[in-house]
């Protein structure tokens, strides 16, 4: 474990916590007898969260952590896997099933056919992988899928007029975690002999590059202290 990977995992954990906080805020709002002004805004405007991206991430974790019960790495590793699995599936459940949270989900805007991402990633994993076994192909599939899983969310943000802070921070943290992982891979390449994982590295690089324009607008909005806005 190195500082880059720990920082990456913590950033990833933070992104999940921000999303859970946002869902909690929406839930607690509607619980009130009178909608406070913030609540009114929250409930009226769409949450800006893409269910499609959340579903893709749940699939990413489900196919990446198949070894959670067969290969024990460390307590930290197992706990983090359980957190990511539990949170991603519960977030999908909240947005799909929770009587209040699902009202803040704008399915008319979140129209990205994520099936068009799943199939190519699966085909690519069947062709390019480190070993043609069930677990290895699904693990490789999870890497390719994670690289593109943010696309429905980024497209939804372009359509969302006012991106609220929590959503912007969620996407920023999600992009930052993989950028930190790239530093971790560079560090491990120079410190560990034979540490070469081209598939992981290229997927992670593509994933981070997809955030490039978001990062640009995110930092510009911070610098100019204006509301985050993505050009359509």
């Amino acid at each position: 474990m190195n500082i880059f990977r720990l920082a990456g995992d913590m950033t990833h954990l933070m992104s999940v916590l921000v999303l859970l906080l946002k869902i909690h805020t929406i839930k607690s709002c509607a619980g009130k007898s009178y909608p406070c002004s913030l609540c009114f805004i929250l409930l009226e405007s769409s949450s800006g969260i893409s269910l499609k991206t959340q579903e893709l991430y749940a699939l990413v974790f489900a196919t990446r952590y198949l070894d959670i019960f067969t290969d024990f790495i460390s307590v930290y590793n197992t706990i983090m896997k359980l957190i990511f699995l539990g949170s991603s599936f519960s977030i999908v459940w909240y947005i799909r099933r929770h009587k209040i949270v699902r009202r803040s989900y704008d399915k008319d805007q979140d129209t990205f056919r994520h099936f068009f991402l799943v199939l190519p990633c699966l085909l690519l994993a069947l062709i390019i992988n480190e070993k043609f076994t069930f677990k290895e192909v699904l693990w490789t599939f999870s890497l390719y899928l994670e690289a593109v899983a943010i696309l429905p969310q980024l497209i939804l943000l372009q359509r969302t007029r006012n991106i609220d802070n929590l959503t912007g921070q969620y996407v920023f943290l999600l992009g930052a975690y993989r950028a930190l992982y790239i530093l971790n891979w560079i560090y491990r390449y120079f410190t560990e002999p034979h540490y070469v994982h081209w598939i992981t590295w290229i997927s992670g690089l593509v994933q981070t590059l997809l955030y490039a324009d978001f990062f640009y607008y995110y930092f510009s909005s911070l610098k100019n202290n204006v509301k985050l806005k993505l050009p359509a």
Binding site: R5, D9, H12, D67, I73, S74, M80, E130, W139
Partner: peptide
């Protein structure tokens, strides 16, 4: 057969 190293990253 050559065993792949364990996946120690999340």
């Amino acid at each position: 057969h050559q065993e792949l190293p364990l996946k120690d990253e999340l």
